[in-house]
Design a protein around this nucleic acid. Structure first.
Lengths: 134, 134
DNA sequence: CATTTACTTAGCTCATCGGTTAAATAACCT
DNA sequence: AGGTTATTTAACCGATGAGCTAAGTAAATG
């Protein structure tokens, strides 16, 4: 019984070899041989890893003569990011819209009031770092 | 030999029960009993899942009388998000620089109307993080 | 056609994982 | 103290996962 897509994807990402393969592929499409080079591991092992990555939707594979070039496939990454988004507010303080609005209001206010509010402004800027929606 | 932190975290996320637990915890801190309720599963099983989540740095646990309240812990989420960031350009079109510049230009153009002094800053941040609200 | 190159499949081992039940621990409540 | 409630630990089991070697497939090349 196959796992749900998100589970397969996370499972695929839970292996350092596979993450290293993805990191290499982020630099561009390449062959299995090329991908295998950095690892002290048999070729079949790499082949399995690629199968796992493919099944997880993290890579796709083409055919060029005897080579099977691999490349990053976006969709599963996107899904992981989407899932992670449900929790973003826990670490990205400025993610929350209310927070964002508040910060903005403070900024507006601080923009009028000069020097003694500097500290507050700096705090605000730090919180705002990473705020991407609004 | 324990896995590297990122591997443990991804491994922890690769289970639907554990992701459901996290989803519940996103609504707020709660007890093991409460967390176990939705699942057709023994309590020890849940206890194990929580141990995995804790070891993965995804939750932390307190002590209140006989309860061990669980809550989301931000750090590992953050790390996952950070790792994912290396690949964001593959699915988030507005992440890449050219696109970002384009967005900025558009924003500048559209800036005739709205009365925000902080506008420019916000656009810039958006470009940096590469995420815009669609 | 035979060989080389690039991979994949098959079959094995061993460790880990997700689940179980039964028993242990811990704190509260008569 | 004795019991109830909340949770963990122990011991086990079947399935899966990551690695191996050896053999199989597929396409270019001598």
């Amino acid at each position: 019984m196959p796992l749900d897509p998100l589970s397969s994807t996370f499972a695929a990402l839970a292996d350092p070899t596979r993450r290293a393969i993805l990191a290499r592929l982020a630099l561009g499409e390449t062959s299995v041989m090329e991908l295998a080079k950095p690892f002290d591991m048999s070729l079949p092992a790499i082949s399995k890893h690629l199968k796992v990555l493919e099944h997880a939707g993290l890579i796709s594979r083409g055919r060029e003569a005897q080579w099977r070039p691999c490349r990053i496939a976006p969709s599963s990454f996107k899904q992981v990011d989407g899932w992670l988004g449900n929790f973003r507010r826990f670490w990205d303080e400025s993610f929350n819209r209310l927070d964002g609005l508040l910060e903005e209001m403070k900024a507006e206010e601080a923009a009028k009031a000069p020097p003694h509010t500097t500290r507050k402004v700096r705090v605000k800027k730090e919180k705002q770092r990473g705020r991407t929606r609004g």
